[in-house]
Design a protein around this nucleic acid. Sequence first.
DNA 1: CGATAGTGTCTGATATCCCAGACAATGGAG
DNA 2: CTCCATTGTCTGGGATATCAGACACTATCG
Lengths: 247, 247
Amino acid sequence: MSSVPAAENVLRLLTYLAAHRRPVAASAVARDLGLPRSSVYHLLAVASERGFVVHLPAERRYALGPAAFELSGGYASQQPLARLGRPLLAQLVDRLRESGHLAVLHGADVLYLVEERAPRRPSLVSDVGVRLPAHLTASGRAMLAALSPAQRRAAVPLPLVTRHGDPMSPARLHAMLATARRTGLAVEDGEVTPGLASMGVAVLDRAGWPAAALAITFRASDDAPRNEIASQLTATARELERRLFGS
Amino acid sequence: MSSVPAAENVLRLLTYLAAHRRPVAASAVARDLGLPRSSVYHLLAVASERGFVVHLPAERRYALGPAAFELSGGYASQQPLARLGRPLLAQLVDRLRESGHLAVLHGADVLYLVEERAPRRPSLVSDVGVRLPAHLTASGRAMLAALSPAQRRAAVPLPLVTRHGDPMSPARLHAMLATARRTGLAVEDGEVTPGLASMGVAVLDRAGWPAAALAITFRASDDAPRNEIASQLTATARELERRLFGS
DNA sequence: CGATAGTGTCTGATATCCCAGACAATGGAG
DNA sequence: CTCCATTGTCTGGGATATCAGACACTATCG
């Protein structure tokens, strides 16, 4: 425990609320975070005053407030990745008429920073600010492929499971990542959303570390223009690297 | 000051970082938040451990981290507005081929929750998680128009200024809001971004309070299909009301 | 290069925050 | 309706978090 426990606990509270798809009861917070109930009320009170939490008295529950949401705007401004990546991704999506996103690796997951939806395409499961396990997504695989073996071991938790909780073979992931390393392209086909496939390309920094990945999501049909997508996606990732890191 | 000052201060820290477009030095945090320097380092340390802040040693500055960004995903999930509004806005944007957004009123500002960019349209100034003064935007005007006079007085700070810092007449805003009230439509023309205009319609709850506004941004030319935009926008706002609040 | 200002880390005494617990209010089930 | 569980609010003493300050390190400027 840190030297500023109240500060740490309020951050744990926000993280907890963000992980829940529904507003949460104070007693659940106390139980799940292992904090005294009265302390939780204090934290909720101060977080409410500051706009990070809203109390829903009718439901006797708490949810994140506008100030929590607003951090995303600040993050996006401070992060060159999102700021420089967005217009490039927008152009790519306009050209290909398929939806795309920019994601970063965060622990064992990918975190989606930018999403560009193409016309007549559904909103993606990869909503901004949402996480998915890296090993299940094209973006995640592209980035994992670019890590050193030690980094990869640290990033990927065992045992591996699919999106539905079934076991997944490490050898299968290993083979996919080897292919991604060789071709520069990572793929995902129907594993996140049936009927949809994705291609991902890592955006590497000067040290070869995957700072991000760009991906395009398309219908998994036989006539999908995979070669076109692959070459445009790769060119866009290279351009983003150039803008971010110089070349 | 609250009964949990460390919790409050770490939230103030996050708010401060979110308000800065660039990473920030610890000494600036201490100075501007009026906190002891050593306390700031403690807060930054715990926020870093929890992923809410990242330290950029090369610049000797601090920025928001991925956990801060991730709160936006949680917020969007918990908020029916964003969840139910996004697909409706997506359809509207696909139909009109113009970009649109969904915003809420927060203090004197609008806060953008959802943005849908149309093909070949620029990324909007109204990036998600960003604020603009309500009185300058179509969404904000639509919502201000729907407030009671007392609520409006509380929401709109005087003196009014334009985006470039010039004075703006309260009588002019008053006239615009009266028109918006009469027609159900609020407009903004070149004031946020030269050459671009927006139309906004408020989404009212059962008590007639503006829970949100939908807006469409388009080129401010004489041949813009304003009537088409107006009727589609209004229909979408009514549908969102129906889905959120029943009718 | 040296001087200076700023950054980061650490310390410890004392003021204050945190926790356990009590009580009031509310909601739901039988 | 009563009973019980849950939610929300409040209290106060002792453990500990906080603040002022010291020191080491780093970057910049003349």
